[in-house]
């Protein structure tokens, strides 16, 4: 049995799955919100006349400017914040559905390496999230055009696109532990609880000097979720994320290989 066949079977499992389209719909909603906020930022007078902001209030958003740099920054934040939640939902769905639909026992009793299933599901999640990130980038360019920002400078577009995909990669590094919590608990509730808890921990840690050592804060720092966006990832932080990824993958594979499946 080749890994490609297992990967292909995981893709087939997604056929007619509603969550695939819902995730893209969710990102479309992000774009709509971004367009709306940017429109107000660009046209404060019009927004004031429509009663969207107070007559005397000034509208500022974390120092964002109504240009391509501001727009890319906002989409990067959306990619990290939304991605941390949405990618967890995707991973929880991919692993958790086997338990909620009662198919885990059928999958684990097949004459196929269980590590292949873990790897294939994580690859599907990565591919899914890469497509979502590309979709988000396309939305960013469309919103910019709609707002009349003209053509984005090539260097800026290249740098921000790279940043967006780097953020996606870092968000992905956090997911194997979500997969482990899902298979260990055999359902949806515990991993959702875990995801919320890590978001809280990440947000608390981000206000301390330990933020660059806390995996859930590192991604938030890079996404600019707490103050100015950090450019690039420190080596130590990269190692923390790599270790988080490795521990999560190992725990999930070992659980699938050796733990009792009493579903």
């Amino acid at each position: 049995m080749t890994f490609a066949k297992v990967f292909g079977s995981e893709i087939l499992k997604l056929r007619r799955s509603k969550i695939t389209w819902l995730s893209f719909l969710c990102y479309a909603f992000f774009a709509l919100m971004a367009w709306f906020v940017f429109w107000m930022l660009k046209n404060p007078e019009a927004a004031r006349n429509l009663g969207l902001i107070g007559q005397k209030a000034s509208f500022a958003l974390n120092g964002l400017t109504a240009d391509w740099q501001g727009l890319f920054t906002m989409f990067a934040e959306l990619g990290v914040a939304g991605g941390m939640i949405l990618l967890s939902v995707i991973v929880i769905y991919l692993f958790g559905r086997e338990y909620s639909e009662g198919t885990a026992k059928n999958m684990l009793a097949l004459p196929v390496s269980r590590a292949y299933f873990v790897a294939a599901k994580l690859c599907v999640a990565a591919l899914w999230f890469a497509l979502l990130s590309a979709y988000l980038l396309a939305e960013c360019l469309i919103v910019g055009k709609l707002l009349g920002l003209g053509t984005p400078p090539a260097e800026l577009a290249a740098r921000e696109s790279a940043n967006l995909f780097l953020s996606a990669l870092l968000v992905l590094a956090l997911q194997p532990i979500v997969a482990f919590v899902t298979v260990a608990s055999g359902g949806y509730l515990a991993p959702f609880g875990y995801t919320i808890a890590t978001l809280l921990v990440g947000n608390l840690m981000i206000r301390t000097d330990w933020a660059r050592w806390c995996p859930w804060s590192i991604v938030a720092l890079l996404g600019g979720m707490a103050g100015p966006r950090q450019e690039g990832v420190l080596l130590g932080s990269s190692l923390v994320l790599a270790a988080t990824f490795a521990v999560g993958v190992a725990a999930t594979v070992l659980h699938q290989a050796y733990a009792d499946n009493c579903q």
């Binding site: 087939l12 499992k13 056929r15 639909e101 009662g102 026992k105 059928n106 009793a109």
Partner: peptide, 27 residues
Amino acid sequence: VGFLVESAAAYPNLTVRENLELQRRLT
């Protein structure tokens, strides 16, 4: 080995043929 353990289970969003196709590929 072919098996059926306790309750019948299949991927609900896939058709009968697709569920069997999945099994065919994996075996």
